[in-house]
Each structure stands twice: as C-alpha cells, then as structure tokens.
Amino acid sequence: MKNIFIAGSLAAMLFVSCKKDKAIGTPVEIKPDYALPQAGASTADNNRVVQLFNDYGSYFLYVYTQKDFEWTQATSTGNSRIDTAVLGNPQYVGAMLDYLNDVWLKFLPADFKKKGGIPYRIFLADSIRQYRTGYPPGMEYLYTDIKVSGKAIGFAGMNSGLLTMTPAVKTTRKLALTTAIWNYYLGNNIVDIPASFYNVSNYTAAAPATPLNTSNPANVEAYRQKGFLPNGYNAVSGAPFEWHNGAFSWTNAKSNDISAFIFNLTQRTDAQMASYLTYPLIRQKWDILVNHFQTKYGIDVRAIANATY
C-alpha cells in the first residue's frame, strides 16, 4: 500500500507541474560588452578596430572608463597605489595600431591571435600613471608603457609621439612590451613549456658559496656549463644579471631558468647570444624552445628579438 501511495503522489505532482507549465517568453538579448565602432577616430581607423574584433574577438578600445581599465589599491607597504589610464587622442588610433602591429602583432600567426594571443580587451592610452601617496609634489607619479590586468592589457603612447618616435626609442619600448606580454602568456597558460626543457639541467645543485659575477669567473663558467643564462643585463655596461645567487633564488630554479631563457629568446639578438650558445646545454635548451614555439604556435621567437627599426 505504501508503494501505491508514493506512486500516486508522484503522478499527482507530475500532473500539477504539467498544468503549471507556461510558454517561455522572448529570450533576453545579451548585448556585447562594448559597442563598435567607438566615436572619435576616423572611419578608416574605426574599420580597422572592428576588423580586429571580427577576426580575433578582441576589443581595441580608445574610449573606456577608469573602472574598465582597473583601479587597484594596495596597502602592504603603507602607500596606496592607483593605476590610471589617461585617454589618448582618437586621431592617433591608426598610428597606435601600426605601432602595436610593428612591435607585437606581426610576429603572431592568426590562429594564435584567436586562441588568446591577443587578450579580450586592449586599452589604448596616452599614458599610464601610477600614483604613490607620501611623495613630494611632482614625484608622486610613475609612468609605464604597459599595464597587464587580468585578461586585459593597456598600452601607453597613443599621442603625437608616435609620429616622431626614433628607432632607438621604438626598440626600447618593444623590449618592455615583449617582457610583459610573454609573462602574460606564461602566467595564463597561453603558451606552455615542454618537459624536455627541464630535463636538461640539474636543478638540485646547491647555489655557489660566492656570488656569480665578474669577480668570480669560475662560478659563472660552472653555471654556464650547467645550462643557465642571465636573466637581464645592465642597460649601460651590458653586464649580465644572474638569477642563481643565494639559496632563495635556487628554490625557484625552474621558474627562474625559464624566465631567463624567454627573456633572451625574445629580446637578445643573434650577435648578442653567440657566445652563450657555444655552451652545449644552453644550446640544447635554446633549440628545444625555439623549435617548440615555432612548431606548436607558429611563432618565430628569434624574429621578435632580431627585429630592428
């Protein structure tokens, strides 16, 4: 009898639920995040922005709010930090697109651009300022060429300076943009690193007792033989900065190692790298990465580094 009662109850509930069914109304329209074209740029430049969105699903925006760009406050040091984008003059949208293509986009194949190579939002700005409280008037702002924020990147420089930029300045900016963009790719798993790269060097060796620098050439030589590159260079003297100094940096040896290789792969010319590539393990790891990025993503990382203006 209990089973009959349960079955009857279920049937009654089903009948009632069917009686209460109503027709589904008109679907709610999901509007795009931004309306293109935006107002201010020429028709030709707006057409380029629209085409970039149609091709790659990425918004290249020159009209946006500070909330769009990002507002961040950090108090870990006792000072607030506010990153602010100053909107550029729309008449320079075309010149800005040319600039970004020359230092970044032309090196990427179409498929890679569609699969995250271009973030969802690109903010075109005159300048990007960082306000720091507690500093004297006139010294409270820092400026940067690029700001990565989540799935968006802001680029500064959309102003008359694009029309008079020297090759040296363009190269310097390319290097700064390349560093931030490739950190973004790695951090968001847009590109990966093959296991074969990490299988070459020994990451369990202890750090040297004395620093790696020109005063300790034996240490430098030993670590080159182990397959390790510098992670930067002095802008004036060209002297290398070594990441493997001290116990702490050595606990993050793998991440430091790949960062150093990506830096050199994308920023140092063939001539600058020639002496390093005479070391067998450096050369082996180098070739692994060059082939990996070319084969899997269609990116010639050496073309990025060797580009001149």
Results as ranks from 00 to 15, higher is better:
residue 298 G to H: 01
residue 135 Y to H: 07
residue 46 N to Q: 06
residue 20 K to R: 12
residue 117 G to R: 04
residue 169 V to F: 15
residue 285 K to A: 00
residue 84 T to E: 12
residue 231 N to G: 00
residue 270 D to C: 10
residue 201 S to Q: 07
residue 14 L to N: 09
residue 298 G to D: 01
residue 90 P to Y: 11
residue 23 A to Y: 07
residue 137 P to V: 00
residue 108 L to K: 02
residue 261 F to I: 04
residue 57 G to C: 04
residue 174 K to R: 14
residue 246 G to S: 05
residue 292 H to G: 06
residue 256 N to H: 04
residue 165 M to N: 03
residue 228 F to P: 11
residue 163 L to P: 09
residue 210 T to D: 04
residue 305 A to I: 09
residue 240 P to G: 02
residue 147 K to H: 11
residue 263 F to S: 04
residue 45 D to A: 13
residue 33 D to L: 12
residue 79 N to Q: 07
residue 155 F to Q: 08
residue 138 G to T: 02
residue 207 A to H: 00
residue 125 A to P: 06
residue 154 G to I: 06
residue 144 T to S: 14
residue 223 Y to H: 03
residue 132 R to L: 15
residue 185 Y to E: 04
residue 140 E to A: 05
residue 99 Y to A: 11
residue 24 I to L: 14
residue 307 A to L: 04
residue 14 L to E: 07
residue 107 F to S: 05
residue 74 A to Y: 10
residue 121 R to I: 13
residue 28 V to D: 15
residue 93 V to G: 00
residue 72 T to V: 14
residue 215 S to E: 13
residue 119 P to D: 05
residue 10 L to D: 02
residue 309 Y to K: 05
residue 24 I to G: 08
residue 114 K to R: 10
residue 17 S to P: 02
residue 228 F to I: 15
residue 8 G to F: 13
residue 273 M to T: 08
residue 227 G to W: 01
residue 276 Y to A: 01
residue 112 F to P: 09
residue 183 N to K: 14
residue 38 Q to T: 01
residue 253 A to L: 01
residue 43 T to E: 09
residue 152 A to E: 09
residue 15 F to L: 12
residue 264 N to L: 10
residue 102 D to L: 03
residue 36 L to T: 00
residue 282 I to N: 00
residue 131 Y to T: 04
residue 4 I to Q: 13
